[in-house]
Amino acid sequence: MKKLGLATALLLAMTGAQAYQFEVQGQSEYIDNTVNDKNFTGAVQGTYYFKNVDSSKGPLAEAAFLNQASNVSVAYNYGEYDVDADDSDFVAHTYGAKAEAYIPTKFVPAYVSASYNHTKLDGKGGEADDQGDRYALELGAVVAPNFLVAVGYTSVADQASLDAFNIMNNGVAKAALESATINDDQDAITARTKYVGAIDGTNMAIGFETGLVYGEQTAYNLGTTLFVTPKLSVNASYMKSNFTESPNSAWGTNVNYFITPAVAVGASYVNANAEKGSVYDTETVGVNAKFRF
C-alpha cells in the first residue's frame, strides 16, 4: 500500500497536479573568466510550504509568491574556483537555512524572513582555508495585491561567507558581487520590492524586482520578467556596485519553462564585464530544474 501511494503521488505530480507542498530544485553553472575556464558550481535547494500552494492561477513560477505561502528552505552550493593569475585555487561549500512567513493583519499582510548561511573554503595550492557565517533578517508588507516591499539587516562576520539562496536565484557572479559590496563592513542594510501582475486581455503577466545593498559600498539591482504564458517566462536583470574593484557590474538573462505544473527546466546567462586592465572578466552559463509535489 505504501508503494502504491508513493507511485500515485509521483504520477499526479508528473501529469500536472495543481497544488504542491514541497519543491526541490537543482542548478549548475559553468564559469568562464579571462584567466580560467574550468570553474563550475552545483546547487540544490529544498522548500517545504506549511500549506498547499495553489498553482492554478497566474504564472507557475510565482505560485508561492501569489499565494503568500509561508515556508522553510535549506540549500547547499558547491563550487570549484581556480584562478591561475594569483594562485587562487579552492573548493567552496555554502550551506543555508531560511524561513519566510506572511502574516495577516487588519491592514495589509506582513512579511518576515530570517536566514543563516555558512561558507567553508578548502584552499588548494597556496590558498589558505577560510570560513564564515552570515545572518539576515527582513521585515516588510504586501502593500498592494502581489506587491511586496521589504527592508532588512545582514550581518557578515567573514567575507568568505556567501548567500546560498542568492546563488540559487541569481547566480554565483551576482552573489559574489553582493558580498564584495558589503566588504569589510560587517553590517549591511538591504531593501527590495517585488511585483507580479497580469497583463489585461491576455494570459501573460509581468514581474518587476528591485534591490539595494548598503554596506562598505552600495549596490542596486533591477529585474523584469515577462511571463509569456503561465508556463514560460523570460527574465532580464542588471546589478551595479560602486566598489572600486572589477568587475563591479553584471547583467543577466534566464528562461524557464514548466513542462508540467510540477516539473520545470531553465537556462541562465550572466556577464560581469571587467574594466580594462582587470583579469576577471566573467561569464557564467547555468541550467536548472524544479520538481514540485
Rank of each mutant, 00 (worst) to 15 (best):
E209V: 11
S56H: 02
A64E: 07
N52I: 00
P145H: 01
G123R: 00
N71F: 10
A144C: 04
N36F: 08
V53M: 03
T260F: 01
Q21L: 07
D133M: 03
G252V: 03
Y214A: 15
G79Q: 13
T202C: 04
A43D: 14
T8E: 13
A198N: 15
F227S: 08
N146R: 04
A114L: 07
Q131L: 00
I103K: 09
A205Y: 04
K57H: 11
T154R: 15
N254M: 04
G211A: 06
L212P: 03
E216Y: 03
P261Q: 02
M1V: 14
T190H: 05
L66Y: 07
Y214C: 09
Y214I: 10
K106D: 15
D86M: 14
I189R: 08
G201R: 02
N146G: 08
A236D: 00
D54A: 05
Y76V: 01
K98I: 01
V255Q: 05
I182G: 09
V83K: 09
L121N: 12
T41Y: 03
K106P: 12
P261M: 01
E216L: 06
T34K: 12
N203H: 10
A144S: 08
G79I: 04
G5F: 09
K57N: 14
K124A: 08
Q186V: 10
N254R: 12
M1N: 10
F258D: 04
D37A: 13
S241M: 02
N36Y: 11
P261D: 01
N254T: 03
T190A: 06
T284S: 15
E216N: 10
A75Y: 06
A191F: 11
V44W: 00
G215C: 06
F293I: 12
Y111F: 07
G46H: 02
N33T: 06
L11T: 12
N221I: 00
D163F: 07
D129S: 05
T229H: 06
S241T: 06
A110P: 03
A69C: 04
T218E: 11
G223H: 10
Y220I: 09
I31A: 01
S161T: 07
S115M: 14
V72R: 11
M14V: 12
D84R: 14
D122Y: 08
L60M: 13
V234Q: 06
L177V: 05
A198E: 13
L60R: 14
Y48M: 09
A173M: 14
F65D: 05
M168R: 03
T47N: 05
Q25V: 05
E80W: 06
F65L: 05
F65P: 15
G277N: 05
D86C: 11
Y78C: 02
T253H: 01
N273H: 06
V112H: 05
E209Y: 11
N36M: 07
L148M: 08
N288C: 00
A63G: 07
Y30V: 01
I206A: 12
P230D: 05
K2E: 13
T210W: 09
Y238P: 08
V53F: 04
Y280I: 03
Y76K: 09
K98M: 11
F50A: 00
L121F: 07
F243P: 08
